[in-house]
Design a protein around this nucleic acid. Structure first.
Length: 220
DNA sequence: ACCCAGGTGGCCC
DNA sequence: GGGCCACATGGG
């Protein structure tokens, strides 16, 4: 594995931003919508999540009260298009029941210190590393760098980072080497997803990648 | 008829 | 602590 310290993350971010523009993530009108979206989007495309969110809104079901008291079959039916819908419906309901019981509201939960918040989120079934950090960053709005499949793939393919690097190790690397700034954290992750979606798919490999000149510069 | 998507949990060794 | 597998629908 090449030495990570050689990689200039600020340069990468600026290069991406000049290609894609400022992306202004996460889409979502409320914190609740961001949390639900973060779970629904696991291993699925955002397009399907949007359809599910619209369905929930049209049925007045995108509310704390509805989720906590929902009939799982009805709820599942509305989010069917995202895949794994029974599992996700169950997880989401349980998560919000836990929040209601212990914290009354999302805002109270999000007022916790971010390390404590992360620990609690990770203890809930249906929330793993990436989802926890997406919630912390985009709903609770605290600086936590989100690592996803694209970020790992891009860092591996373009910058030769160990393919099997652990989530926390890659996250720590980013957090040590970029400014502790909420807007930057949000947009940097968004830029990685944009690059991954368009140019760094599983197959074919990177094509016409806007970062190609950076790769050459760093690797050669 | 494949393969993939902004993962996660459970089980096995 | 890593390597599989199930979870499930929609799109290329």
């Amino acid at each position: 594995m090449r030495d990570k310290e050689e990689i200039d993350l600020d340069y990468i971010y600026n290069k991406l931003k000049s290609n894609f523009g400022f992306l202004n993530w996460w889409p979502g009108d409320t914190k609740l919508e961001v949390v639900i979206g973060a779970i629904l989007t696991q291993q699925t495309t955002w397009k399907n999540v949007e359809k599910a969110i619209i369905k929930l809104k049209n049925n007045n079901s995108l509310t704390f009260n509805y989720i906590v008291n929902c009939n799982l079959e009805d709820f599942g039916e509305m989010i069917k298009e995202v895949g794994f819908y029974k599992q996700k419906a169950t997880y989401i309901k349980n998560i919000f029941q836990f929040i209601e019981k212990n914290y009354k509201s999302l805002d109270n939960l999000f007022n916790l210190d971010k390390q404590e918040l992360r620990k609690i989120l990770l203890s809930l079934k249906g929330i793993g590393d990436e989802t926890a950090d997406s919630i912390i960053l985009y709903a609770a709005e605290k600086t936590k760098f989100v690592i996803d499949a694209y970020t790992k793939r891009i860092m591996h393919r373009l910058f030769n980072i160990n393919k099997n690097i652990k989530y926390n190790d890659l996250q720590e690397y980013f957090e040590r080497n970029i400014k502790n700034n909420l807007v930057l954290y949000k947009d940097f992750h968004a830029q990685f997803v944009e690059l991954g979606k368009n140019y760094c798919k599983l197959n074919p490999l990177c094509i016409n990648c806007p970062l190609t000149n950076i790769c050459k510069k760093i690797i050669n």
